[in-house]
Structures are given as structure tokens and as C-alpha cells.
């Protein structure tokens, strides 16, 4: 049983290291760019809407925005890392090489997913660090904040693996990012509270799977939340397991990998 999960630890860490060094080598695009865009969001929205009162007592909009932006940065980075890596390797015709390595499917998938998780986590953390200067360093519940950041990254990295396996080119990936992920993030509570939306939209907002993730991250950061905390605390880890399981399933089936 253990052997069907872990067979070749050195191989696993080599692959994980590759997935991390792949984006570290081009850190200007992969880390600095999203960080800068997050700071721009903060400057533009935060500066413009500084006076706007959020529904929660004593919390400024800038503070409200920080966990939202950290979540969004993590989501995009975590999703892009494995999907970009897999699609690029399809272009280079090197993806199939992985079929010859003595690694279990679990090791392969986990390496891809953790590579993306690390990038997402890094973006989220860097976003937080960069905003210390604007809003202070205080995190209400650091454990919740960082665990949520890791979980969100893990989920979207798993989805990124699935996207990479199924998609044939970067245009399709960008399409998914622009048409699905971006609106989901915008309406999932990155920039405003779901409860502030008009009724018909806020109903949909609560069903947005991104909402509990962003909401819990915000809870870790600010100590305030919307909706039912317990349900969300069960929901998010559940999604993480399901997303990873799905990535595993398609990887094991050889989608995009084998003829």
C-alpha cells in the first residue's frame, strides 16, 4: 500500500524541486509581477475607497482588502504553476518523459501540486508582507491564515494540474483564467463582502466555492467572517481532497500523457 504511494522519495523531491525552480528562475514574471499588481489594486481601490465603511466595526477597507488580494494572488499563481508547466512541456514534447520515471502516480501528482502550492503560498505571504507597510503586521489568527493560504493554494494547484492535462495550449488556459477564475474571484468576496451585494447576487455569492475560502482567510487575518464558519471549515478541506483526488484520477488514466 505504502509502495503504491511512495516508491521513490529522491525522485519525488527532484520533481518537486524542478517544479519550484521552474518558476524561481523567472521570478520577475512569476513572483514580482503578481505582487506588483496586488499592490496596484491596493493603491487604486484602497486609496479611492479608503473612506468606504465595511460592514464590520472598526475595520478599514485596506485591511479588508489584504486577505482578499492574498487569496486571489495565491489562487492564480497556484493554478498557473502546474498548468503552465504541463502545457509548456506538451509544447516541448517532454511531458511524456515523466512516463518513464520510476515514480508512482501519487508522487508525480503530489510534486506538481506542491510546486504550485508553494508558489501560491509564497505570493499570498509576500502580499501580506508587502502590505505591512500600509496596514500593519497584525494577523488576528496566524494559524488559520497560513493554513487557509496553503489549502487554497493546494486546491487551485490541483485544479491547475487537471487543466494542464486537458488543455492543449496557453490560449485555452488564459481563457479559463479570464472567463471562469477571474469572475469567480471577483464575486467570491475579494473586493467586497458578499452580504453587501444585491440580494439575487449575494445568494449566488454564497454558493460560489471561492467564497468560503476567501472568507476563512479573511477570518484568519481579521477575525471576522460572513456565513456559517463551521460549514466552511468542513467544506474547504473537503474540496482540497476532492480536487487532489480528481487530479490523481486523470493523471493515472493518462489523460494528455499516454496514447
Amino acid at each position: 500500500m505504502i509502495r503504491t504511494l511512495f516508491y521513490n522519495p529522491t525522485g519525488f523531491f527532484t520533481l518537486l524541486n524542478r517544479e519550484i525552480s521552474r518558476f524561481m528562475k523567472v521570478y520577475i514574471q512569476t513572483l514580482m509581477a503578481p505582487l506588483l499588481s496586488n499592490l496596484l489594486f491596493l493603491g487604486v481601490f484602497g486609496g479611492m475607497l479608503k473612506t468606504r465603511e465595511v460592514g464590520i466595526e472598526g475595520i478599514g477597507y485596506l485591511q479588508f482588502l489584504v486577505p482578499g488580494l492574498a487569496a486571489m494572488g495565491a489562487i492564480f499563481a497556484a493554478f498557473q504553476n502546474p498548468s503552465f508547466s504541463i502545457i509548456a512541456q506538451k509544447y516541448q514534447d517532454t511531458l511524456r518523459d515523466i512516463n518513464s520515471y520510476p515514480l508512482t502516480t501519487f508522487e508525480k501528482v503530489l510534486a506538481f501540486v506542491l510546486g504550485g502550492t508553494f508558489r501560491g503560498f509564497l505570493i499570498g505571504t509576500l502580499t501580506y508582507i508587502a502590505t505591512i507597510w500600509f496596514v500593519g503586521y497584525r494577523i488576528e489568527n496566524p494559524t488559520v491564515f497560513f493554513i487557509m493560504l496553503a489549502l487554497i493554494s493546494f486546491i487551485f494547484s490541483s485544479l491547475g494540474v487537471i487543466a494542464g492535462l486537458f488543455l492543449e495550449n496557453f490560449e485555452r488556459m488564459n481563457f479559463i483564467l479570464a472567463i471562469i477564475l477571474t469572475p469567480m474571484a471577483y464575486f467570491g468576496g475579494v473586493f467586497f463582502e458578499i452580504s453587501k451585494l444585491p440580494d439575487f447576487l449575494s445568494g449566488a455569492g454564497y454558493l460560489n466555492p471561492l467564497f468560503p475560502m476567501i472568507n476563512l482567510l479573511r477570518y484568519g487575518y481579521l477575525g471576522v467572517y460572513e456565513g456559517n464558519l463551521l460549514i466552511q471549515l468542513i467544506f474547504v478541506p473537503f474540496v482540497a481532497v476532492a480536487a487532489f483526488g480528481t487530479a490523481y484520477y486523470f493523471f493515472n488514466k493518462g489523460v494528455g500523457l499516454k496514447d
Binding site: 521513490n8 529522491t10 523531491f13
Partner: peptide
């Protein structure tokens, strides 16, 4: 990397 994939440190 190739060595690593095959378990060689």
C-alpha cells in the same frame, strides 16, 4: 534531474 528521477542522489 534525470538522475534524481531515477532515485540517484
Amino acid at each position: 534531474n534525470q538522475s534524481g528521477y531515477f532515485g540517484l542522489k
